[in-house]
Each structure stands twice: as structure tokens, then as C-alpha cells.
Design a protein around this nucleic acid. Sequence first.
DNA 1: CGCTTTTTTGAAGATGGTCAATGGGTGTGG
DNA 2: CCACACCCATTGACCATCTTCAAAAAAGCG
Lengths: 243, 243
Amino acid sequence: MYQVHQTLVSKLKEHSRLTSDDVTMIKSFSYSIRNLIHDEDIIRQGDDPNLAVLVILGTVARYHLLQSGRRQFLSFHVKGDLPDAQGLFLEKMDHAVCSVGNATIASIPHKQMIKAFELRPNVGFAIWRETLIDGAIFREAITNNSARPPTVRMAHFFCELFYRAKAARITDNQTLDFPVLLPQLADTLGMALATVNRSLSDLRDARALDFRLAKLTILDWKRLTKVGQFSPSYLHLRKPPSI
Amino acid sequence: MYQVHQTLVSKLKEHSRLTSDDVTMIKSFSYSIRNLIHDEDIIRQGDDPNLAVLVILGTVARYHLLQSGRRQFLSFHVKGDLPDAQGLFLEKMDHAVCSVGNATIASIPHKQMIKAFELRPNVGFAIWRETLIDGAIFREAITNNSARPPTVRMAHFFCELFYRAKAARITDNQTLDFPVLLPQLADTLGMALATVNRSLSDLRDARALDFRLAKLTILDWKRLTKVGQFSPSYLHLRKPPSI
DNA sequence: CGCTTTTTTGAAGATGGTCAATGGGTGTGG
DNA sequence: CCACACCCATTGACCATCTTCAAAAAAGCG
């Protein structure tokens, strides 16, 4: 019903080559399904997880909890992503993972995955590569939030999101459900709420995109990528989705 | 003379357990040494590296090259770090690595390392963990540059740097050679040069640290960590260095 | 239709950015 | 040994931008 194994295999094939034996190995993973409503914590800062989480439906976010009580969102994840792969070999989570809107996740025991890596190193390498791409996404976020002015920053953020969503085949034509509110965008991009709104207005006025009430619509992809200085090579996909 | 293998083993032992067989495996790696002067590129954006770089002496930095020609520095690396481990399983580098001041690096062929991972998965897991800690450092940089005001941001940056340097045993008491100039600090922390200077003045006035001409001096570690809201758990060391 | 939630707008004020000038330290050559 | 030059750090003034705070408008929902 949920095609858990197929979701993971498709995802890994976006960037890695898998033999049929590799695929068989992956299909042997057991898992359990969990449905979430908005803003449930999946893993908390300080936890020692022994399950790997695979997103099946909806959106999930990583975040840091700050002293002030504010959140800093680090990344957003969609179908096929492993939002806590970072915890596979780390004892204590240094960040948390929560649902954004309704979501469905599958949990796979770490032990099984590690066993698989020992039996078929290539499966391990594919998931390792997955975690390295996560790293590339983090690096890009550093640059985006540190070096680009608000409107450019906003455009880049949505470019990446939409590009990855296209690759995961969860877009509906030029629209994407993305159940995030403006204050959360502010906590992602490191800007004030008013600035978030003004940047979005700019992009709307430029007929590049429209984002309102959890729905993103791309109006002009080419223009958006230009404004956002977006170049997708850091996502390391074997073949880019057509947008 | 350079103790290349020992440097790598010590580094991995900061966060991972290695059996003596693992160590033997690591000691079988061949390598070549390279000495660098200031600001030489070790790997460029777009390269497809087939060597892994291990820092032996000095400092090395990762950076993004922006459209404007400006650089955004992503992280700094010292003895024992593998600054391009991110390229182990990625075809095309999405960022560059350069020397900062004089530095010495050892290069190990990717092929040998991957062979080692197949023979001794545990060696692979240790290096995988190393790349995951890199990821944690990137996440922290997102938060630091996005959510913290200049002086706090500066303090946090130097806390992490000094803490990692202590773990690598390259500090001289409470001082560290760090051959970075103010404009580069600006390109790291996403602030203007004047702001960099004023933040440094603040920290100097607060008797927390002194940074001038490539030399960092910690004046009051406790105060510095407090100002910088620094909590080192994200570095995932098995036992913290004493400072 | 009225309530709640989310977005939008406005104005004031703080903060950080830009630019240009000054100061300090070091090394070189007269 | 002094003078000059260079490089980097520092300071100051002005200005643009973003943040803050508050209020209004718009959109969803029962």
C-alpha cells in the first residue's frame, strides 16, 4: 500500500547505481508505519535513535532549538528522504525532526541497515552518498542565509525545494503542497516576518512564483532560478528532472 | 616524519572505536605529501577528485565561489580533518578547498579507502561518522549565521574552532595560530568587515578572547562559551578536551 | 455570518552596511 | 638608525536595510 521499499529504491537511484542484489537487500528491510499530524516531534535533540526514518508522504523538517526558545529550521524533507540518516552513526541527536502538516513515515531499525551495509557495501555507499548530499544541502543553506539578500535568498530556497520535489515526483504540474507558514519561513531563512512577506511580494510581482497558504506555484521557473542564482549541481542527481 | 597514519587514527578515535585490525588496515594506506603556501586551491568546484585529503599541518578551508566573485567560507580544518571527505562518493565537487596560510596535507587514493571499507566495514563506519560530524558542523553554521547577532556569532565561531583545535592537540596553551584575516572572517560569518571588527572589540573588551594577526588567545573560556551560547555536543566527541 | 488563522501593511527605530580616512606595526632600503 | 611604504586593523559618519511592534485586511472554516 505504501510502497516503502520502492520509495527508498527510487530515491537512492536518483544518485546511485544499484544492482538487483542491492535492491533485493533493500527489499528485505522490515519497517513500521506511522501517521503524524502537524508539528509532532519524530526525534528530539538529545535522543539516541535506533530507527531510521523514511518519509513516505507529506513534509518533515529538521530544526535546532535555540536558547531563546525560537527554532531554526535546517532543512525540509519529502517523499524518499531519510531525515535522520545523520543519526545513523551518531549517539545523540544534535537536532530534532518534526512533521510539517500531516505526514506518513516508515521506520527501519538501524541494526538491519548496518547489517545490510556489511553484507553489501554498495548499499551502504548509496546511503552514505545520500547523507553526503544532505551535507551539500546544508552547505548551500549556509551560503544562502549568509551571503544572499532576502529576495534572492527566498527565490533560491524555493528553487531547491521545487527541484527536489520534482525529482521525487510529488509535484502537481507547477504546484507543490508545502504546509509551512510565513513565521516558519522566517525561522528558516533567518529573516523577520515582515521581510519574508515583502520578499514573497517581490517574487509574486515579478511573476516568478506564488506562495500562499501552504501551496507553492511556480509561475516562471527560468526567471526564478535566475533571481535565486540557483544551479542544481550541488544536489548531485544523475539526471535532472524536467521543469 | 609526518605520522600520517597516526594522525588519522587519533582523529577517528576521537569519535569512534577502532579494533587493532581496523588500525592495521588504516596503516596500510599509501599516501603522498604536499606542502602548500597561503591560498592555494587543493580542490576546485567542479573537480572530480580521486584522492582524499588529510590535513597534517596548518589550516585548510572549504568555500563556495559566488556569482559576484566573492567567497563564502563554509568551514575550517586542522590536523586530522578530512576536508574533502564529502567528495568520497560524489562525482563533482560542489565547493572548493584551499589552504589558509602554510599547510601540509597527505593525499590517499579513494580506491584504497573504498577497498578498505569493503574489507573492514568498521573502518568505513568511522569515516562515515567523520562525514556526519562535518554535517553537524554545517548545521550549526546555518544556525549561527542565521539566528545569532554578530558578537554572539563571532564568539560561537571561535568556541568551535578552539574546541576542535584542543581536541586535535594543536593549541599552545590558550593560544592558537589561525592565519585568517578579518575580511575572510567577514566572508565566513556573513557580516561586513566593520562589524567583524566591532564584534572582536566587544569580545576583547569583555576579556573573553583576543584575535589579532593570525593569533587567537582565549582569555576566559567560560565567559566566551556563555557569550557564544556554545554547547559542544554537536561535535560528538567521545571525551571532551579540557580547556 | 462570525470567528480564527494567516497574511499584509505601516511607521518608527535599531542595526548593520558602505565608504573613506586614520592609525599601527613590520620590514626594507637608504 | 631613520624614513618610507605597505599591509592590516581600526574608527567614524552616514545611510540603507531589516527588525520590531502594532494594526488592519483577507482568507478559511464551522
